[in-house]
Amino acid sequence: MTEKTEILQLGADALRQQARRVDDFNCVKFHQLIATLSSIMLESNGVGIAAPQLGASWQIIIVASRPTLRYPQAVEMPPVVMVNPHYKILDESLIKDWEGCLSVPGIRALVPRYRALHVSYQNPQGVACQMQLQDFPARVFQHEFDHLQGLVYLDRVETNRDIVAETEFFKRIAA
């Protein structure tokens, strides 16, 4: 990865492909990609990012819920790199809330997501890990996990009326 790495935008073919499992945890490119994902996510005020957003077809996501300009009400949690993640639903309740995406700038939408999950993944050293996520961090995980399946959050919207311009979104949350 170079310093000129950019986040792919909606319409890029790589965003619509299923990502491959990571099998080589010693690969230099793998660790460089994780570092690049982290820095781009932070620079972009993101609360999560997935490898396909940088054109890398690997099952790697970072979940990093924290208050930002884009998500001022987000809860604080340290960034977690998740490789080859999967999950079980702990709470079948679907909660609609606002989402945006670094690959879909300028738009926000109300997206239904499960409230609580049990997540299993490998860390960057290949060690099996588990955690439970709920509310906003669970939402971020599901959003990033979708990228590994070739989906974007707009694919989950129930009606086009739930999609708004980001300028309108900021008016709504300021009210």
Score class of each variant (00 low, 15 high):
residue 108 R to T: 04
residue 127 V to E: 13
residue 121 Y to N: 04
residue 95 I to L: 13
residue 82 M to Q: 10
residue 112 P to V: 02
residue 85 P to G: 12
residue 117 L to R: 00
residue 118 H to I: 00
residue 121 Y to E: 04
residue 104 V to E: 05
residue 113 R to Y: 06
residue 84 N to K: 05
residue 76 E to F: 02
residue 116 A to G: 13
residue 126 G to E: 12
residue 119 V to R: 01
residue 100 G to F: 00
residue 103 S to W: 12
residue 107 I to D: 02
residue 82 M to G: 06
residue 94 L to D: 10
residue 112 P to Y: 08
residue 111 V to I: 14
residue 90 L to T: 05
residue 128 A to H: 08
residue 119 V to C: 02
residue 124 P to G: 01
residue 114 Y to P: 05
residue 97 D to I: 00
residue 80 V to H: 00
residue 119 V to L: 05
residue 103 S to R: 10
residue 122 Q to E: 14
residue 117 L to I: 11
residue 70 R to T: 14
residue 95 I to R: 08
residue 105 P to G: 11
residue 93 S to N: 14
residue 78 P to A: 15
residue 89 I to M: 07
residue 77 M to A: 10
residue 100 G to Q: 02
residue 83 V to F: 04
residue 112 P to M: 14
residue 107 I to Y: 11
residue 73 Q to H: 13
residue 108 R to Y: 13
residue 96 K to D: 11
residue 115 R to C: 04
residue 81 V to H: 06
residue 116 A to N: 06
residue 87 Y to G: 06
residue 111 V to G: 08
residue 98 W to P: 04
residue 91 D to P: 10
residue 112 P to A: 11
residue 75 V to P: 14
residue 92 E to R: 08
residue 83 V to H: 02
residue 92 E to L: 00
residue 87 Y to K: 01
residue 124 P to V: 10
residue 88 K to W: 03
residue 73 Q to I: 00
residue 109 A to R: 07
residue 72 P to I: 04
residue 80 V to K: 03
residue 85 P to C: 10
residue 125 Q to F: 07
residue 72 P to V: 05
residue 82 M to C: 08
residue 120 S to T: 13
residue 108 R to W: 09
residue 115 R to T: 10
residue 96 K to T: 05
residue 70 R to L: 14
residue 88 K to Q: 15
residue 94 L to C: 00
residue 125 Q to E: 15
residue 103 S to A: 08
residue 69 L to V: 12
residue 86 H to W: 09
residue 98 W to N: 03
residue 123 N to Q: 00
residue 87 Y to E: 01
residue 109 A to P: 05
residue 73 Q to T: 10
residue 113 R to E: 10
residue 98 W to I: 04
residue 115 R to Y: 10
residue 86 H to N: 05
residue 74 A to I: 00
residue 101 C to M: 08
residue 70 R to W: 08
residue 107 I to Q: 12
residue 74 A to N: 07
residue 71 Y to A: 07
residue 121 Y to Q: 04
residue 113 R to P: 07
residue 126 G to Q: 07
residue 129 C to D: 07
residue 70 R to C: 03
residue 84 N to S: 09
residue 119 V to K: 04
residue 112 P to H: 13
residue 96 K to F: 10
residue 108 R to C: 11
residue 92 E to T: 03
residue 85 P to V: 02
residue 87 Y to S: 00
residue 74 A to T: 01
residue 128 A to P: 00
residue 73 Q to W: 08
residue 98 W to F: 13
residue 74 A to G: 06
residue 84 N to M: 01
residue 99 E to L: 03
residue 122 Q to W: 02
residue 73 Q to E: 14
residue 83 V to Y: 06
residue 115 R to Q: 15
residue 110 L to D: 05
residue 129 C to V: 02
residue 111 V to S: 13
residue 97 D to A: 11
residue 129 C to H: 09
residue 101 C to G: 03
residue 71 Y to G: 01
residue 124 P to L: 04
residue 121 Y to D: 03
residue 86 H to T: 13
residue 108 R to M: 08
residue 94 L to K: 14
residue 81 V to G: 01
residue 114 Y to E: 02
residue 118 H to N: 06
residue 92 E to D: 14
residue 76 E to C: 00
residue 100 G to M: 05
residue 95 I to V: 15
residue 78 P to H: 09
residue 77 M to G: 14
residue 112 P to S: 04
residue 71 Y to I: 01
residue 105 P to V: 08
residue 120 S to P: 00
residue 92 E to A: 13
residue 80 V to F: 01
residue 79 P to C: 08
residue 115 R to L: 12
residue 98 W to V: 03
residue 122 Q to D: 05
residue 70 R to H: 14
residue 69 L to Q: 12
residue 123 N to D: 15
residue 78 P to V: 11
residue 115 R to M: 15
